[in-house]
Design a binder for these strands. Structure first.
Lengths: 188, 188
DNA sequence: CCTGAACTAGACCGATTGGTCTAGCGGGAC
DNA sequence: GTCCCGCTAGACCAATCGGTCTAGTTCAGG
């Protein structure tokens, strides 16, 4: 959260982009949120807004992979881990005010002219899915079944996040998790 | 597609918003796409961009409910209908160039200060889910099971759409459908 | 102490934004 | 005809956009 000037900018940008998307946030807003001048931003991110968005996305991607790994630590089976994962996301969503979107989609779906963004988002999503699949394999699942289960988990998570945002209600995620993985009941 | 001036504006706006989101599209772009002057836009949509976006969202919402109903016409069971639904979406996504997002989320997730947008998106999503559930009940499912199945279908659809967009590949949706509803194999 | 690089600070730029306003067109009612 | 009204047309506006540039500050290494 705190840290160098560069980190402060990336973090503030990530938070704002999650709410309003890439085009919805002006640099002046990021600057106001950090109290830093424009010169600092362009010193640390020479290519301006695009660089800033990529760093913000990288930042939140690290956070997401960490949450995935944490969710599957000390877990008895995949259902339990997946359930924990969704409860953690629900909590995060709630803490942020029940209106933020998936950081990656919010930042990186800026339109066809931002091909680099699209490619990065595909890379990050693939990272999440292979991460989930690795945990599934570790917990005894056959590799191809694990991959399918990981993709299903990703889709359900994205979908529940979207509906939770529309309803401004984090319980959408929790209810979905309980429904889909009844064996993994968890209140984390 | 064609129609009155008002329809032309709403349709062009819907297409553009799906690609770049509410904040990513300027009115000048919509005007350029339709060849109409600014005066016409503000005559038909007195509250400007917000009105235009709401109409564009209503427009695509009608299209989505129509696609849902079409998918479940002459269908033998829920799996078959759900599968058809996702194949139809995949086709649409492909035709639009493999990079458009869900119209409702693209248009209506513009940030916390647009509370009316958020409320509308919740309303539309609820419409889709109850529509799916109604078809499930009609096909013999118990009401509470039908609701859960409809929500699952919604989540999977949204998630698959997101990943398809990141990968710029419509097969993500088709593969998911085949995986989740193997009984509903369909090439529509 | 001096120098130079890293960084902060913010004035400034042209372009574009959403929005307003007036003028004029076109066709039905009288 | 001529009046009126729904609509088109686009000039114009202040505000904001992302981005550039230069001056000033800070601080480590010599």
């Amino acid at each position: 959260m705190i840290g160098t000037t560069r980190d402060k900018l990336a973090w503030a940008a990530a938070k704002l982009f999650q709410e309003k998307g890439f085009h919805g946030v002006g640099l002046s807003e990021v600057l106001a949120a950090t109290g830093l001048p424009k010169g600092s931003l362009y010193h640390h991110f020479p290519n301006g807004k695009v660089d800033l968005a990529l760093e913000a996305a990288a930042f939140t991607n690290r956070e997401m992979t960490r949450i995935i790994d944490e969710s599957f630590e000390d877990t008895r089976d995949f259902d339990h881990g997946a359930c924990t994962f969704l409860f953690k996301l629900a909590r995060m969503f709630e803490v942020m005010g029940n209106h933020t979107g998936c950081p990656i989609t919010s930042i990186l779906f800026a339109g066809p002219e931002y091909e680099a963004f699209r490619a990065k988002s595909a890379e990050y999503f693939e990272e999440w899915i292979t991460g989930l699949a690795a945990h599934a394999v570790r917990l005894g699942m056959a590799p191809d079944v694990a991959r399918a289960e990981a993709e299903k988990t990703f889709h359900l998570m994205q979908g529940a996040w979207t509906l939770a945002r529309a309803k401004a209600d984090s319980d959408v995620m929790r209810d979905m998790a309980r429904q889909m993985w009844p064996g993994g009941l968890n209140t984390a």
